[in-house]
Design a protein around this nucleic acid. Structure first.
Lengths: 343, 343
DNA sequence: CTGAAAGCGCTTACAG
DNA sequence: CTGAAAGCGCTTACAG
């Protein structure tokens, strides 16, 4: 095993002290032009690469960010991670990855794994966080950014401890519903997330109902169904919807996956989309584009959520910024085949 | 900033030397029961956690594996990464992640990033690797496992340098085609990957044609189309296919994404699936299950590819095993809605 | 079984 | 501007 070359070796070859070699490595100004040249030449000659582990031990910083997410398999995360990776790479940080596999109980352990490896910061993406979750993070004293996760934290003091990047869920649902009403739809149903969930479901339901009200349309309880954001749950909720006496003209599913499941239920019954029943989703994942008919939706800026959260986190790590909680990014409406204008 | 507790602190509290404290930390047998107890107690009292960076510097091992992949956004990878993560976590390794963003030119740089951080091993997932790619890896002297990537390496010597986990693409295409013929289909078309690509496309085309031949069915060149594994390319290839004088009964697309694109083209023309044209995919990603109609396919054991590759790699790292190139995992046929029995 | 010491490969005051 | 030295937090021969 060829022992790798150390700073000591380049110093010797360059005929300087190891401190000087270190200084040129770190671009310190206080090195004479001449010695700098010699060291640089020696480094090249020896193909020197600094040992980041040794550096980390000394500087107490690893240039590494830990990413913890609920389920790497969820298509929602792909683009977010891509955004994270883009910024991290460009700012010379590496990414450590932990998949919770939908089990929040593993959180503590993964945070500790990251802390033991001295990550400079952590990015968390889950469904929601409460006071206790934040306290677990806070006790580790590592800068934290939370992306696309509902923050349900009561203790105001905790809000100084982390960044949070999200869209305005209520406004997104409101805007989407306004858009649908603008298309001419008057009989609107929704398929929400888990019933009573104060984090994800409620704000979107609220936005939906607000838009209805403003347009003088009465919300019909029998058209308010619940799923769990999955394809299957959308399928089932739509089946239930189709059992109702009257059919809505359009169903707003609070995730694209549910919208696709709902679409399948609709088509399996022989109905056409959007002619018989129209469908609208939430998230803007690729899957909806690749469906037939492609699913109109309100898009979360996933890539941008990743970039924004990561650059804020890194600025914090590097002392350029401290957490200004709650960064809200803007959503957008995407028209595709599952809706049409009735006007 | 509360300075974290070091081994020195627990040694002092326990009234032992730091070496002894280290020994109980590492479960060395040569420690008296009594001192072991005291150290353990001190550790608990101080909530001691070893600094992995310091350990790494001394032991020259980091208990981390670097994962390099082409595009984290590709739904194919989710389950593979999940498998990797599962094994890594259980064997106490962390995962460093690098997304090439479809650009092999970044490979060198990402390998070096990982090497500088002293990863113990690297897992690579791309489309194909050649001699040069392997040489880049080999020159870094880090154990390497390649998953779901076609190996097109001529220099036999290089084969001792890495693990490779894959399915038998030719056999998978062959088995799938046999299955389709068994269903009663006699007019079969395919949409392959990039034409002439010796890695991905050729073996599947070969398997397809072999099955046809064995059943006395003539392959029709005009029904051999090419895409690039994406949804859009499948859509286009299917459009071309529909321009042909005669329509095939079934189209075997060499990726689920292409099968879905093809399905969209079929349905947009008003044809029914599978009644007018049946469709068969490749990969077994979730998207195909969530399509309407759901796409029959030949499934790659993605999760298992991740677990197998990772456990082999770790065994190699820990000296329990050396690379026996080419591990072949078995595929399976999944019947869904886009095909039917004609018999 | 045990402690003192050397060393992993760096960085950074410190004294010149 | 520069080199020698101390130290980051561990592990591991070494001598007892």
């Amino acid at each position: 095993m060829s022992r790798s070359v150390r700073l000591k070796d380049v110093a010797k070859l360059a005929g300087v002290g190891i401190g000087t070699a270190s200084r040129v490595l770190n671009n310190h100004p206080n090195v004479s032009k001449q010695k700098r040249q010699m060291v640089l030449k020696a480094m090249e000659e020896l193909c020197y690469r600094p040992n980041e582990i040794a550096r980390s031990l000394k500087t107490q910083t690893t240039k590494t960010i830990g990413v913890i997410l609920m389920d790497i398999t969820n298509p929602f995360y792909g683009n977010v991670v891509k955004g994270i990776e883009y910024i991290a790479y460009n700012k010379n940080y590496s990414l450590l990855l932990a998949d919770l596999n939908c089990n929040m109980n593993a959180l503590k352990d993964r945070i500790d794994e990251f802390r033991d490896k001295n990550v400079d910061g952590i990015i968390f993406m889950g469904t929601s966080v409460n006071d206790m979750d934040i306290k677990i993070f806070a006790s580790r004293q590592i800068p934290l950014a939370i992306i696309s996760t509902n923050v349900n934290v009561k203790d105001k003091k905790l809000y100084a401890k982390f960044y949070s990047v999200n869209i305005d869920n209520e406004k997104a649902a409101y805007d989407a519903t306004q858009y649908l009403i603008g298309l001419g739809y008057t009989k609107l149903a929704y398929i929400s997330g888990v019933q009573g969930d104060p984090n994800s479901s409620i704000p979107r339901e609220y936005g939906f109902k607000k838009a209805l009200k403003e347009n003088g349309i009465q919300n019909r309880q029998e058209w308010n169904k619940y799923g769990s954001f999955t394809f299957e749950s959308g399928y089932k909720a739509m089946q239930a919807l189709l059992e109702e006496e009257e059919r809505p003209e359009i169903v707003f599913a609070f995730s694209d996956l549910m919208a696709m499941g709902a679409a399948k239920a609709v088509m399996s019954r022989g109905f056409r989309i959007p002619e018989d029943i129209a469908l609208f989703g939430f998230d803007g994942i690729e899957n909806g584009k690749y469906f037939h008919p492609s699913i109109s939706t309100v898009k979360q800026p996933r890539y941008q959520m990743g970039t924004k959260g990561t650059s804020c986190l890194i600025d914090w790590i590097e002392g350029k910024e401290s957490p200004t909680c709650m960064i809200t990014l803007s959503h957008s409406i995407i028209e595709r085949e599952s809706t049409q204008s009735l006007l």
